[in-house]
Every structure is written in C-alpha cells, then in structure tokens.
C-alpha cells in the first residue's frame, strides 16, 4: 500500500510554475480589489466581485495542492486525496451551514420584544 506525497522525485520546474501562478493569482485578486475600490464599488459590481475572488482563491488552492504538495502524483489507492475530499465536505458543511442558520436567525429580527411576539405568535399563545 503506497500513498505518495512529496516522496516522489519532485523537480524544480514544478515549484517555479507553482510559485509563478500563485504570484499571478494573488496579484490578480489584489488589483481586482483596487479597481473595485477606485471605481467606487461599480467595476466589478459587489456580487460579481465576491464570485471572482472566490474563484481566484480556489484556483490558487488547486495550484498549490498540485505544484507544491504534489497531491496529483499519488498512486492508487489515493488515500490522501480521499481524506482531503472528506475534509473539504466537512468544511463546506461547517461554513455554509453556520452562515445559513445564522442568517435565518437574523431574518427573524429579534429585539427582546420581537422575540417575545414571535414566540407568542409561533406557539399560538393568546392572552
């Protein structure tokens, strides 16, 4: 049972490419924000900006996993990748689950009075 990570003979082009791509992606994200702030939040618009930043970050994650950690060079059984994918699933559940639940709670308004009224209405309590 062999699960390879970094034990393969890596070579320098791998690292140089990874470094170059990561630099480019970091500077791209940074200039994107600069343009966005200079154009007073119009280019690109807020919602598109968040998608672009997310894409840039995820691409850089993949670049570093491939060129620095060599996750793609693993031979079967690909246990390292399986564990990473499972961790990814847990991350998605924790982060988006928390945001979903908390924004749902926010939607219910909720000063103490509003909380009372909400519960009274929700439970069908009549005075």
């Amino acid at each position: 049972m062999r699960t390879k990570l970094n034990t393969d003979k890596p070579n320098i082009t791998n690292y140089v490419m990874g470094y170059g791509l990561s630099l480019a992606l970091t500077l791209a994200a940074y200039s994107l924000i600069r343009i966005h702030l200079n154009s007073i939040h119009t280019i690109p618009s807020d919602s598109i900006l968040y998608y672009l930043l997310a894409v840039l970050a995820i691409v850089q994650l993949l670049v570093q996993l491939v060129f620095f950690i060599h996750l793609n060079r693993e031979t079967k059984p690909r246990l390292n990748i399986m564990v990473a994918l499972f961790a990814g699933l847990v991350v998605v559940v924790i982060v988006f689950g928390s945001l979903w639940i908390m924004s749902n709670l926010n939607n219910h308004g909720m000063t103490p009075d509003q909380t009372n009224n909400f519960i009274i209405k929700d439970e069908g309590i009549h005075y």
Partner: peptide, 14 residues
Amino acid sequence: WIFIFTIVYLIGAA
C-alpha cells in the same frame, strides 16, 4: 493564508 487574505482582508476592504 490565501483564504485569510481573501475572506478577511480583500472582502473586508470591499
């Protein structure tokens, strides 16, 4: 750190 840079600092600035 890539994600701290993006989520905390860049989106924070936006």
